[in-house]
């Protein structure tokens, strides 16, 4: 046996094939929609050449006003819910990671995890029942409130993970060098936590933007976000303008996840000497 056939204990035949299958399953549907959104044909399944007509249709067609309003709602809700959830989550992470041992710590972690552990449909039912029984009018505000609640843990996890990676000696060093507690936070801890806070915000933002089930329950009449608008349209069949819209949202998500990936990478390259 030559060098080429050296026994490698890590290698399993077929695992690379499975990986290709996995990626194919994950990406094939998305690629197909991306390609067909540029299809010139009226019959959406027959290829009729490259065209941007459905994108034009999306922005100027009869349904464009509805989608623009939905996009505006989605983006403003995601932005506001993302910011508020990130603020709460940052404070919570400092309390949990730097608060020492206190009574109710495990309980607090359980509370933060509820939105992740409970099935979305149950959260949706609970929120609907609660809002109707205390008389909160269903609409933009109720969606925003619900999104803040379930975005908190998604913002919390990357922030807490980042904070756990920062030894407390950095804050001690700052205080040792005459920084007040606030200055130690402002000049040392916060800049060091920044990548985690940013990832937390991006995750919360995208989770809010993507949410369908909860929003669908509590949106009330007349208020739509992009997912509920798309769902409503798809019920009548997949039209090409929906594919164009889906492609745009797909690309937007990829931009956000790439951003988040780059933040994580630049940061880890800094941490290792």
């Amino acid at each position: 046996m030559g060098q080429k056939h050296r026994f490698n204990v890590r290698h399993y035949t077929g695992f690379s094939f499975m990986t290709i299958v996995c990626l194919l399953i994950l990406y094939l549907p998305l690629l197909v929609v991306l390609v067909y959104s540029f299809n010139d044909s009226l019959s959406i399944t027959r290829w009729g050449g490259f065209s941007l007509r459905w994108y034009t249709e999306l922005f100027t067609g009869v349904e464009s006003a509805k989608f623009k309003q939905a996009a505006f709602n989605s983006l403003t809700i995601a932005l506001s819910a993302g910011v508020v959830a990130t603020l709460f989550a940052t404070a919570a992470a400092i309390g949990m990671v730097r608060g020492g041992h206190f009574r109710g710590k495990t309980l607090s972690f359980g509370l933060i995890s509820i939105p992740i552990m409970v099935p979305e449909i149950v959260t949706a039912v609970a929120t609907l029942i609660f809002f109707t029984s205390i008389g909160i009018k269903l609409g933009y505000a109720s969606i925003l409130l619900a999104h803040i609640v379930f975005c908190i843990p998604f913002a919390y996890l990357p922030i807490a993970a980042r904070l756990q990676g920062i030894e407390s000696s950095f804050e001690e060093a700052a205080q040792d060098l005459y920084a007040s507690r606030w200055q130690a936070f402002r000049y040392v801890l916060m800049p060091m936590m920044a990548p985690g806070i940013l990832s937390g915000f991006l995750l919360a933002f995208i989770i809010s933007l993507d949410d369908f089930i909860i929003t669908n329950f509590i949106k009330g009449a007349g208020v739509e976000t992009l997912p509920t608008a798309i769902f409503g349209a798809v019920k009548q069949g997949i039209k090409p303008n929906i594919m164009a819209l889906s492609t745009l949202m797909l690309l937007f998500s990829i931009v956000i996840v790439t951003l988040s990936y780059l933040i994580g990478r630049s940061d880890s390259s800094k941490a290792t000497h």
Partner: peptide, 29 residues
């Protein structure tokens, strides 16, 4: 509190602020 004591510490892990330059670290106090 530590910031009111005229005592300074060299930490075992050094605890140099990673986002500051050498000069900024030395000038922090």
């Amino acid at each position: 509190p530590p910031d009111k004591r005229p005592i300074n510490t060299v930490f075992q892990s050094y605890a140099l602020f990673p986002h500051m330059t050498v000069a900024e670290n030395i000038g922090f106090g």
